[in-house]
C-alpha cells in the first residue's frame, strides 16, 4: 500500500528549478532511500513533502489523499529528522523530548514516559538533564532522531542521518533505523552514503540535478546495471597456456586476466560453473576460488548516473 505518492513534484526558486517534476511513491512499512550527490534536490524534496517548502508544481498524497498546499493535515503522521540538529540548545535532553511530544498534542504523562523510554533506548539516560548544547555531535544526532519519533509517527523522514558523526555512532543509528523499520515505521531516508543505502533500503531512487534517474529495489538496480555475468577464477597455473583452447571450447565467453593473475570470465548469458571448473581441472589447473562478481551499489550509481549525464549532454549537443 502506498503511503506517500509524489506526482510531477517540482520546486523552483527564483527561476532555478531544484526539483524537476519527480514521480515516486513510498510503500507503507518500507525503507525508501533517496540517493544523490550534494545539491541533487534531496532536502528540497523532503521539505516539500513535510510542508517546509512550498510546492511549485505537481502534487503529493498521503494514503491516497491529496495534501498539496495543506501540509498540516499530514504533519501529525510524520516525524522529521533534519540534516542538522534543530533542538533547543538551552533545554536539556529530557525537556527537549517532552516539548517535542507536546507539539504533537501528547498528554503530559504519556510524553514524559515516552521521553524516559527513548532516552534509555538511545543510551542517553545519563545525559537527560544536561543542556542540549553540551551534547556531542553523535548524541545530538541521536536525540534529534528521538525527538522525531516521540509521537510515534507513521512515516519518518531522515535527512542524512549519519553525516558527520563517527563510525560507532553511525552504526548505532543504522541499527536504530532497522529497529524502527521492524516495528513497522515507514522510513524515507536521504543519504549520499551509498553503502548505507545498500545496507538499509528496500527500494532506492537515484536523484541527480533534481531528476530521478533510476528507481527500484537494490536487486533490480544491480541487475539492470550489471549487464553481463562475471565469474572470477583463482587458478593454480598460467591461464595463457590454455587460452586458445578455452576460446574454442566456450565460444560465447570472453576473458580478462588481471594483474594479480585472477581470470575474469564474462558472458552476456547466465551460466553454470561446473563445465568451466571441469575444463581447468582436466588441464591440471586446480581451481582455488571461483567467485561471482557483483557490482556494488556505488558502481551501479556511477554507471547509471554517468549514462544519464552522457545522454543529457548528447541531448544538449543535439539541440545546439
Amino acid at each position: 500500500m502506498k503511503i506517500i505518492e509524489a506526482e510531477k513534484l517540482e520546486k523552483t526558486y527564483n527561476g532555478f528549478t531544484a526539483v524537476k517534476g519527480v514521480n515516486f511513491h513510498i510503500n507503507r512499512g518500507e525503507i525508501f532511500g533517496f540517493l544523490g550527490p550534494n545539491g541533487a534536490g534531496k532536502t528540497t524534496t523532503i521539505n516539500m513533502l513535510t510542508g517546509l517548502a512550498r510546492i511549485t508544481g505537481g502534487r503529493v498524497k498521503l494514503l491516497g489523499e491529496d495534501y498539496t498546499g495543506n501540509p498540516r493535515k499530514a504533519q501529525a503522521m510524520m516525524g522529521i529528522v533534519p540534516d542538522e540538529s534543530n533542538l533547543y540548545e538551552e533545554l536539556n535532553g529530557w525537556e527537549n523530548l517532552s516539548f517535542c511530544g507536546a507539539l504533537y498534542g501528547m498528554e503530559r504523562n504519556w510524553r514524559e514516559e515516552k521521553a524516559h523510554q527513548l532516552l534509555d533506548q538511545f543510551g542517553l539516560e545519563d545525559a537527560a538533564k544536561k543542556p542540549f548544547k553540551a551534547y556531542s555531535k553523535g548524541m545530538k544526532r541521536k536525540l534529534t532522531i528521538a525527538a522525531g519519533i516521540i509521537h510515534e509517527p507513521e512515516i519518518l523522514f531522515l535527512d542524512e542521518p549519519t553525516t558527520g558523526i563517527d563510525v560507532a555512532f553511525a552504526r548505532q543509528i543504522r541499527n536504530l533505523i532497522l529497529d524502527l523499520h521492524q516495528k513497522g515505521t515507514t522510513i524515507f531516508l536521504t543519504t549520499h552514503y551509498i553503502e548505507e543505502a545498500e545496507r538499509l533500503c528496500e527500494r532506492i531512487a537515484f536523484i541527480v540535478d533534481g531528476e530521478i534517474v533510476r528507481e527500484g529495489t537494490v536487486a533490480e538496480l544491480m541487475k539492470e546495471a550489471q549487464g553481463e555475468n562475471i565469474v572470477n577464477f583463482m587458478l593454480g597455473g598460467d591461464f595463457k597456456e590454455v587460452k586458445t583452447e578455452f576460446t574454442a571450447t566456450f565460444p560465447g565467453f570472453e576473458y580478462r586476466i588481471g594483474k594479480d593473475g585472477v581470470v575474469s570470465v564474462h558472458s552476456p548469458e547466465s551460466f553454470t560453473l561446473m563445465p568451466l571448473v571441469q575444463f581447468f581441472e582436466d588441464r591440471g589447473f586446480p581451481v582455488y576460488e571461483a567467485k561471482i562478481a557483483r557490482l556494488s551499489l556505488e558502481e551501479v550509481f556511477v554507471k547509471v548516473t554517468g549514462l544519464e549525464l552522457k545522454k543529457m549532454q548528447n541531448r544538449k549537443e543535439a539541440r545546439v
Binding site: 510524520m78 534543530n86 533542538l87 540548545e89 517535542c100
Partner: peptide, 14 residues
C-alpha cells in the same frame, strides 16, 4: 537562525 523554529513549523498546528 538556529533552525529550532523549523520544528514549530513542522508541528501539526496552524
Amino acid at each position: 537562525k538556529s533552525r529550532s523554529f523549523e520544528r514549530l513549523l513542522l508541528a501539526p498546528i496552524s
